[in-house]
Design a protein around this nucleic acid. Structure first.
Lengths: 229, 229
DNA sequence: AGGTTTTGTGACACATTCGTGACTGACTGT
DNA sequence: ACAGTCAGTCACGAATGTGTCACAAAACCT
């Protein structure tokens, strides 16, 4: 299991607890602290995959934490989502320059924050080469070339395996047939777009399991995506 | 999914190459030229999503290029980021008047430029920057091709999705039927204006929810707008 | 109110896109 | 040479989306 690690820095206990709960629900491994200095320590100890940072916190200010994270060698490229007070346009601009990746303005719904964080994870997180990737009830071990669903071992053909791997590296994201050809077949192939459909079909057939929904979503006139539950 | 297109106009070969590389890394589709006149041609051929423009370049001056881009109908609203020499305050002012959207003063770090460009992309075309766009109680994730309203997932047809996306990128702004045809269908379509009405209807039907007001506003004899609550 | 213009809406014929089974040929290991 | 596996293509039906029209409803103007 390698759930994405999320560091939450928020000093309102009620909000912190709520967010922590919701993020765990989403499958994140959450570390939470109300204090900016402690956040830096924690981040240094175990580099998180993403930081959610309140602008106004105890200890060091959010902005300062952001800056220091960027300076730290190991944490320089960790995406940061800032929580800012309403209408603080100047803060927004200053924050962007400091290197935050996104903003959510208070008051916000947990759902909105989760959507943003999800979008960033999808955008930033590169291919997890050589590791075990988990999306929903699927698990893929790139090194061992093994796929399981709910513990059941799945057997896939080579192309289907690469296709699934690509989807699992970018869960939820929609790819056009052309993009899939580029990513899975290679960028210089001259293959019919519709061929992708056939392999999607074979993939679907391969991973199907009674009682489990089809995680491959067809987006009409756009492409396909792997549903990120 | 089409990567945001960036036109880079810079005549220092070393700098141009560096920036081109960094921007590509960030997922932009970069076209680069050292020459102002050529830049105008390129921009006319395929309208970029953003222009990074050096003040001092061969051929036509940066200022002049900026002015001409603003005059061109298709390129009038393309955001422009200027690269200026240190402390050229007058240039800054003149440039702003000409319509550049932001400035970066040499010497600058690529990181700073990228942050600014990122910020502008987010401001102008959030969906292009891979962001989740939120307007009122609507939320649209272009990458995942998903729309939700008050947490409820909304299913839309392809055209309705593009239509909503366009509205959400310009909340509150009124578009005529013709503008919508250009933006959503493409500029070379020969479609009845009234067809837009039908798709607006379908969009409304798609996003309707008990207890929630219709966010699509009809502006009589002008067009439609998405209400920004 | 009465007439005019503009927009909303349901229906429908046509177009597009997708899912699917079948087929061929390439390649592999025996 | 043979069976087995896999990739790519195709064709056809099913599902879904698209553009237009005609008429109803609403807004506007005098």
């Amino acid at each position: 299991m390698n759930a994405p690690r999320l560091l939450l820095v928020e000093d309102d206990p009620a909000l912190a607890e709520l967010l922590e709960f919701r993020f765990r629900q989403q499958g994140y491994a959450v570390t939470s602290t109300p204090d900016g200095d402690e956040a830096l320590l924690l981040a240094a100890e175990e580099v998180p995959d993403l930081v959610v940072l309140d602008w106004m916190i105890e200890g060091t200010s959010g902005l300062e934490v952001c800056r220091r994270l960027r300076k730290g060698k190991a944490t320089a490229h960790v995406p940061i989502v800032m929580l800012t007070a309403r209408g603080a346009e100047d803060d927004k601009i200053r924050g962007l320059e400091t290197g935050a990746d996104d903003y959510v303005t208070k008051p916000f719904s947990p759902r909105e924050l989760i959507a943003r964080v999800g979008a960033i994870m999808r955008r930033i997180r590169p291919a997890l080469a050589g590791e075990v990737v988990e999306v929903g009830d699927l698990s893929l071990d790139a090194t061992a070339h093994k796929v399981t669903r709910r513990g059941q071992t799945i057997v896939l053909g080579p192309t289907e395996f690469r296709l699934l791997k690509h989807f699992m590296e970018h869960p939820g994201r929609v790819f056009s047939r052309g993009q899939l050809l580029d990513a899975v077949w290679g960028s210089e192939t001259e293959i019919e777009l519709r061929t992708v459909d056939v392999h999607i079909r074979r993939l679907r057939k391969g991973i199907e399991l009674d009682g489990a929904p089809d995680p491959v979503r067809t987006v009409r006139s756009a492409g396909y995506a792997l549903e990120a539950f």
